[in-house]
Design a protein around this nucleic acid. Structure first.
Length: 266
DNA sequence: AGGACGCCCTGTTCGC
DNA sequence: TGCGAACAGGGCGTCC
């Protein structure tokens, strides 16, 4: 789930459900997820205040309180947000629950507890402290070329490196490489200027269109590889069977025909 | 520097 | 039917 498009959809959901409502109670079910505070500390920070703004950087969501402090959410592999009218109806694995004074509650749900919740002094300070790269959606072609320069590894690893550019994970790196017709294990240094330009265009369009689709795998645009990322899946462009290789410690899915490992000129 | 692992968790699926 | 292994869309630390 939670790569850049998913987290952007969560952010909008957060805005729609949780802004400008007085927080009455904070319940933390999994204190281990709090990276820099305690359940009591989080409660003190939020109690009596309201969220007034949100931001996103890569896969991180930041919620700003009217007191000027911030709460950070990262969703790991299985996290999401769920608003319920009755706090008693919070779904299983609700690790953190913000209850509002008027009614309702926002649940941070994470089955596998691989995410984290923190209280950075600001989004900018957090990005700096974690050494995150620029948000993938804000990067123009020149910036993209800059971060590619000198890079030696495989293109998929590079796209997924949060310190290089923030927001792309396993699924969307596959999609971006597919749309650009580039094999996931191609060395970044071997990519031509045209390859890089194509990759950058794919990056933007894939992320933007995925957000438009609500980051819902069932609703992806025609021609997306995403729903075919499994054994027996077929390429939406040429119909060939998709293949998988291990890259960057994850399973990369791609079309062997549309994404040849070696470019023809070599 | 980059890559291959193992690990953090829990739930689901698949093979025997 | 039951059970263990493998695996799942993230990220960190360690070793080579």
């Amino acid at each position: 789930m939670p790569e850049l498009p998913d987290v952007e959809v969560y952010r909008r959901y957060f805005d729609a459900k949780a802004l400008n409502r007085r927080i009455d109670a904070v319940h933390v079910e999994a204190p281990d997820l709090l990276s820099d505070t305690s359940p009591q500390g989080l409660g003190r920070l939020a109690h009596g205040h309201a969220f007034e703004t949100t931001r996103r950087h890569g896969k991180y969501l930041f919620a700003g309180l009217d007191s000027g402090t911030w709460i950070l959410m990262h969703f790991g592999m299985t996290g999401h947000l769920d608003y319920v009218e009755d706090p008693g109806d919070a779904p299983p694995h609700s690790q953190c629950l913000f209850s509002f004074g008027d009614s309702g509650a926002l649940a941070y749900v994470a089955t596998r507890k691989l995410g984290k919740i923190g209280t950075p002094s600001s989004p900018e300070a957090f990005v700096r402290a974690e050494d995150l790269g620029p948000d993938a959606l804000t990067l123009d072609l020149d910036g993209f070329r800059d971060i590619a320069a000198g890079r030696r590894g495989q293109v998929k690893s590079w796209l997924m490196d949060q310190r290089s550019l923030a927001g792309i994970g396993n699924v969307y790196s596959d999609e971006i490489l597919f749309q650009a017709g580039i094999h996931p294990r191609r060395p970044v240094g071997d990519l031509s200027g045209d390859d890089l330009a194509r990759l950058h265009r794919s990056l933007r369009s894939v992320l933007e269109r995925a957000i438009e689709a609500g980051a819902d795998p069932q609703s992806m645009p025609e021609g997306f590889l995403l729903p075919e990322r499994e054994e027996g899946g077929t390429c939406p462009r040429c119909g060939a069977q998709v293949a998988s290789v291990s890259a960057a410690g994850r399973t990369a899915w791609f079309c062997p025909t549309c994404q040849p490992e070696h470019n023809g000129s070599g």
